[in-house]
Design a protein around this nucleic acid. Structure first.
Lengths: 119, 119
DNA sequence: TGAACATATCGATGAATGTCAATGTCCTGC
DNA sequence: GCAGGACATTGACATTCATCGATATGTTCA
């Protein structure tokens, strides 16, 4: 597995609207991957911790404790979130800082919008 | 349910804001279950088909074909969507009609809202 | 250079999940 | 009642995934 495929370089901010029209198999798989990143309690809590941070970012070292999982597990979940584009990472010295990508979250919300005012 | 924070059993309309504050393990598990319902291409397409229906509802018999999966598989996915509260079902005679629950979708969108205007 | 620390990756394992064929349940019409 | 159709459930199988311990990589500092 060449890990060369950095997602946030390739994933645009916009995504097809789930409720706007029937999705093709391909589109559905793409959006599903984003939702899958949120389909785990640990990752939801991580996202909440990041969003709640005063500084807008959190050091990975400060996420292991509150999550109550091992360091490799937290690292794994952060990787999933990062690959989904919902989170970005920045290495500063020994530490790695993570923060939410608001545009990506907003894109997710937009995907849940119906096409018109129909209910 | 021990949560005073009304994660609201399962079928309630409201749900805790993922980005509003760090979620407890219990809350996170509950919300994660909702996102998990969307973390599959087949179910996303089902939801799209329902949302796109002119009549606002679709007979299960009209979902098997477009999805390209077996009838038991479609039935399984519809069950997952229904149990998440995103979809409701109504049996009329031999057929079962499914439709999106807009309030639940909106609740999901709300869960992705940051607590304040912070970015 | 080496010790200490932060993070990522690897390998293994148990659990959850998507899928289908076979079967069961319920309804309608004869 | 009986036959046939619509939908759900069951059982089996392969795949994916969350988790952890062990280990590797990379950085700082003495």
């Amino acid at each position: 597995m060449t890990g060369a495929r950095s997602v946030d370089a390739e994933v645009g901010v916009c995504c097809p609207a789930v409720l706007g029209s029937p999705l093709s198999e391909e589109e559905a798989a793409d959006v599903a991957k984003m939702f899958a990143a949120l389909a785990d309690p640990a990752r939801l809590r991580l996202l909440g911790l990041l969003a709640d941070a005063e500084a807008g970012e959190v050091c990975a070292c400060d996420l292991v404790g509150p999550l109550g999982r091992s360091q490799p597990t937290v690292s794994h979940h952060l990787k999933v979130l990062h690959e989904s584009g919902l989170v970005e990472r920045e290495k500063r010295g020994t530490w790695v800082w993570y923060r939410v990508v608001p545009e990506r979250v907003e894109a997710l919300r937009a995907a849940l919008l119906p096409r018109d005012g129909r209910r």
